[in-house]
Simulated scan of single mutants.
Amino acid sequence: MSERIIAAPVIDASTKPFWDAAGEGRLMLGLCRDTQKHFFYPRGASPFTLSPNVELVPASGLGTIYSYTVMRVAEPYACAYVELDEGPRLFTNIVDCAFEEIRIGMRVRVVFKPTQDAEGGPGAPMPMFAPA
């Protein structure tokens, strides 16, 4: 089976630091400086306080599958909520794993998969998760 084509993300000034880090193989999270809580998706205001007192920080890239499903369309793929060790949950894909092996509570690690822009060129790598 061929690798599924993943659409490139739309990048703007507010998301560029996140995608630049992804291009270097680093997963980043937002951190509220007032509460010291991590959040995803990174943005310019804390979802906890609405304060702009936030920063982008490296994540461990490790987590646990909280919930998942397998989409059985032309080219099947697994979608999941992964709870990162830092706390936030991300909606993502589970890759490099047989569907029958995926389990709630399974430890996973971030991997970055290539994307393709509308013209067929390369886009920013997309963070997904594989068995740890």
Rank of each mutant, 00 (worst) to 15 (best):
M1N: 13
I6T: 09
A7P: 12
A8F: 10
V10G: 10
V10N: 12
D12F: 14
S14Q: 14
T15Y: 09
K16L: 15
W19L: 12
L27M: 11
M28W: 07
G30F: 09
G30R: 09
C32K: 09
R33P: 01
D34H: 07
T35P: 00
T35R: 02
Q36C: 02
K37S: 04
F39K: 00
Y41R: 08
P42K: 01
A45T: 12
P47V: 01
L50Y: 09
P52Y: 06
P52C: 05
P52G: 13
N53A: 15
V54Y: 01
E55Q: 06
L62V: 10
I65P: 11
Y68I: 03
T69L: 13
R72L: 15
V73K: 01
A74V: 15
E75N: 03
P76Q: 01
P76M: 06
A78G: 07
C79Y: 07
C79Q: 10
E86R: 05
P88N: 03
R89V: 07
N93G: 09
N93H: 08
C97Q: 11
C97P: 14
A98I: 08
F99Y: 13
E100P: 05
R103K: 15
M106H: 02
V108C: 11
P114G: 04
T115I: 08
Q116L: 06
Q116E: 10
Q116N: 03
A118S: 07
G120Q: 01
P122V: 07
P122I: 03
P122H: 03
G123A: 01
M126W: 12
P127W: 00
M128R: 06
A130S: 15
